[in-house]
Amino acid sequence: MAFVSLQDFFAMGGHAPYVWSAWAMTALLLLGSVVHARVERRQLIRDLQRRERRERRVGSEPARNLADDT
C-alpha cells in the first residue's frame, strides 16, 4: 500500500484533480461505450420484433418470401 490512510489516497499527494479526472474520463468513456452497445442491441431487437409483428398482422406472405431471397 502506497498510502497511509484513505484520505491520503484520495488526495493523491496533491495531484488529486489530475489523477482522478483522467481516471473519471476513462471510466466514463469505457462504461459509456458498453451502455451504448447494450442499448443499441436492445433497440435493434425491438425494431426487428416490431416489424415481424406488423408483417404478421398484415399477413403479407409473398413479400416475406421475396425478402428471403435477397
Binding site: 500500500m1 502506497a2 498510502f3 489516497f9 493523491m12 499527494g13 496533491g14 495531484h15 489530475y18 489523477v19 483522467a22 481516471w23 476513462t26
Partner: peptide, 21 residues
C-alpha cells in the same frame, strides 16, 4: 496501480495517470 504501486520519485502520484494513458 492507484493504491499499491509506489509513487514515482520524480513525479509523485501524478505518474499514476500512466495506467490509463
Amino acid at each position: 496501480g492507484l493504491a499499491f504501486a509506489p509513487a514515482d520519485y520524480q513525479q509523485g502520484n501524478s505518474f499514476r495517470i500512466i495506467y490509463v494513458h
